[in-house]
Design a protein around this nucleic acid. Structure first.
Length: 159
DNA sequence: GCCAACGTTGGC
DNA sequence: GCCAACGTTGGC
């Protein structure tokens, strides 16, 4: 699923899928081909509406995001690395680019670019990250990141 | 360029 | 409901 250009949504506040209360902030990873929409595009726009997700598993993950959750930004195909950290600015609402179906989007904003991007190779080389969805389910475009995975990747980004 | 993994579609 | 065919994604 390819994210298209930034869309100014006629935002409706209602979420489609209920989300259980959570005590600590969630952490996630979103994937994007830089040729279609890069980290630099994201930074230049000061954030974006994360539209275009058309996969049920990815949709569930979008629905589970809460405002303030931290999100790794991964460049797929070209780069194949996590290039920076983003944050959920607005929780899930109907995707304005979807003509049919209950597809949703979230608003994301940049937090910081990693001095040292974390490549897929780096991740695969870590025995502690063998269960990371990026390794196990390469096609999933929006995935959860566990607290230990999150810490591990941040550590790699700061080496 | 190839192929594995995964998702969707449609015939039966 | 099963499964073959086909399309897409994304790593290699």
């Amino acid at each position: 699923m390819k994210k298209t250009a930034k869309v100014t949504s006629s935002a409706r506040p209602a979420r489609i899928i209920a989300r259980p209360a959570r005590t600590e902030g969630g952490t996630w990873l979103v994937k994007q081909e830089p040729a279609a929409y890069s980290w630099n595009d994201f930074v230049q726009e000061g954030g974006t509406v994360w539209t275009g997700v058309r996969n049920f598993q990815a949709r569930k993950n979008l629905a589970d995001m809460a405002v303030g959750d931290e999100v790794f930004f991964y460049h797929s195909v070209v780069g194949k690395c996590i290039v920076g950290l983003a944050r959920v600015r607005k929780a899930a609402y109907p995707d304005p680019t979807a003509n049919e179906g209950n597809w949703i989007c979230v608003d994301l904003e940049p937090v910081r670019e990693f001095a040292r991007p974390v490549s897929l190779e780096d991740i695969k080389a870590q025995t502690s990250l063998q269960d990371f969805p990026l390794v196990r389910q390469s096609r999933l475009s929006v995935m959860p990141v566990s607290p230990s995975q999150f810490r591990e990747i941040l550590k790699l980004a700061e080496e």
